[in-house]
Structures are given as structure tokens and as C-alpha cells.
């Protein structure tokens, strides 16, 4: 097309500008982490990432991530199904509440959980008498992680299910299929790529959450330190090689997420085109 091609020098100037901007702001920090992590040799790097505290922090991060993915997948599917397949009042309120966690500051997210389960809360005596500790303990970290990633999966599923409509499920129901059969045989094939995409986004955010988890963690090394909190601890102790080595694990995770994202988006689009 003519319009696209006759913008010669402007085109390359803009492309160059964008490339420099992204190289400085995004690529440089990434390269820097990897170089600092490996800067004092592979041996030091290996020692830093296999440090027992680093491994414990990684395991806690994975545990919180698994919880967040499990709860949000269950919730995401239920909420997306419920909001798109039926007509009822109060949908708008429900979807506003679902999106709320990502619009508040992570620190405020942590704060409201402290207010809910902390010493001054009416729930505290009940929980305390049963020996359940939530804030400054692992359950608090898990709850905070679920909270900050709350809408990630439902938000990916809702547009797909809205576009798909309800005809197929209605037909299946008329022919006598039960809930589980309809979901498994009719709805699930439509949403599988979107679901996987949502899970990827949820995993990335859950593994990296810092602010909310920082409020709710007791900052006990080996007990309530997630990987990002462990990185902060090393950094504040001037162990920069250790901090960047632990960071490199999260960088690898981020790069995998980006690659998966491109792949899943591609698959999702293909699927959508097939239906057209």
C-alpha cells in the first residue's frame, strides 16, 4: 500500500528511537543482572543459587505460586462461566470486585490483610485460640499472592466465552448433557488456550510479587522469605553477587513467560480463526 511505503526516513528514525528506548530501559537491566550474577565465575554463581536459604526461598515462592494458580484457576473458570452463560443482576458489581485487587497498590493489599487477620481484628481471637497464624506466616504470603493475581485468569476467559455465546451449551443441555459433560466437551475446548495463557500470567506475577508479600511476611530467613524477599535481604546486606544470582532465576522465569506468551497468543489466534 502506498501510504505505508512512502514514509522513508521518518520510518527508520522512529524504529531507531523505539529500539534505543527499549534497549536502554528493558534489555540493559536484563543483561546487567545476568552479567553481575556470573561476574565472579560460575562457581560463585552455583554456590549462590544452591545456598540452602535460596533453595528454601525458591520452594516457598513455588508453593505460594501453586496455591495462587490453583485457587485462581478454579475461581477464574467459575466466575467466567457464571458471568457469561447466565443473566442475573449484580454482574457489574462482581466484575468490578474481581478487578479491584490489581488496581490497588500492593502495599495497600498487604495492609488490608493485616487489618483482617492482625491482632486488632475480631477474627484474631478465634484464629489464635485454634493456633492458626496468618499474618507474618506462610498463610499470609499465600493469601497475598492469591489477592494480587486474583483477576488474571478470569480476565483472559471472559472475553473468549463472551465471544463464543451460549448456543452450544444450550444445545448440549437440551440434548440432556450434564454440567460436567457440557463444560468438558463443549466449553473447555474453546477456553483451553486462554486458560493456559492466564495461568502463565498468573505464575509470572505470583513468583515476582514483592510489596504485598513484604508486608505480610515475618521476614524470617528460611521460613517466611520468598525469593524476591530473599533478594532484598541479600541486596541490603551488600551481597550483590548473591542478590543478582537469585534474581537471575526470576529473569529466566520472565524470559520463559515471554516466549510462552508469544506462542500461546499465536495458538489462540489460530483457534479463533478456525471458528470464524
Amino acid at each position: 500500500m502506498k501510504l505505508r511505503n512512502n514514509s522513508g526516513p521518518a520510518k527508520w528514525i522512529l524504529i531507531l528511537l523505539v529500539s534505543i528506548f527499549l534497549a536502554v530501559f528493558l534489555i540493559l537491566p536484563l543483561v546487567y543482572i545476568l552479567m553481575t550474577a556470573l561476574g565472579r565465575g560460575l562457581g560463585v554463581y552455583r554456590a549462590a543459587v544452591t545456598d540452602p536459604y535460596a533453595v528454601k526461598a525458591l520452594l516457598l515462592t513455588l508453593r505460594a505460586t501453586l496455591w495462587a494458580v490453583a485457587v485462581n484457576t478454579l475461581f477464574g473458570i467459575a466466575a467466567a462461566w457464571c458471568l457469561t452463560k447466565y443473566a442475573f443482576r449484580g454482574k457489574k458489581i462482581i466484575s468490578t470486585l474481581i478487578d479491584l485487587p490489581v488496581t490497588v497498590s500492593p502495599i495497600i493489599a498487604g495492609l488490608i490483610y493485616v487489618l483482617t487477620f492482625g491482632r486488632q481484628s475480631f477474627l484474631y481471637p478465634i484464629l489464635d485460640s485454634r493456633g492458626i497464624q496468618i499474618i507474618f506466616a506462610v498463610p499470609g504470603i499465600i493469601l497475598a499472592t492469591i489477592f494480587v493475581t486474583f483477576p488474571f485468569i478470569s480476565r483472559e476467559l471472559i472475553p473468549v466465552l463472551t465471544a463464543q455465546g451460549t448456543d452450544e451449551e444450550e444445545a448440549a443441555a437440551l440434548m440432556g448433557a450434564g454440567t460436567w459433560t457440557i463444560f468438558r466437551r463443549v466449553t473447555f475446548p474453546h477456553i483451553k488456550w486462554a486458560l493456559l495463557y492466564g495461568i502463565v500470567l498468573c505464575t509470572a506475577r505470583a513468583m515476582g510479587e514483592f510489596g504485598a508479600v513484604s508486608v505480610l511476611s515475618g521476614h524470617l530467613r528460611g521460613k517466611t522469605n520468598t525469593l524476591p524477599l530473599y533478594i532484598e535481604l541479600l541486596y541490603q546486606g551488600y551481597d550483590f553477587t548473591g542478590a543478582f544470582a537469585a534474581s537471575s532465576l526470576l529473569v529466566i522465569m520472565a524470559v520463559i513467560v515471554l516466549i510462552l506468551r508469544i506462542f500461546l497468543e499465536h495458538r489462540g489466534k489460530k483457534e479463533l480463526d478456525l471458528h470464524k
Binding site: I33, G208, P228, F244, S247, L258
Partner: peptide
């Protein structure tokens, strides 16, 4: 472009 969503904020911060 999506990197800031995928990279944990604390990691970006120290770098």
C-alpha cells in the same frame, strides 16, 4: 514490551 509485566519488580529495582 511485555517484559515489565513478567519481570518481578524487585529484580527490576535492584538492576
Amino acid at each position: 514490551i511485555e517484559l515489565p509485566f513478567a519481570l518481578p519488580t524487585a529484580v527490576a529495582g535492584i538492576s
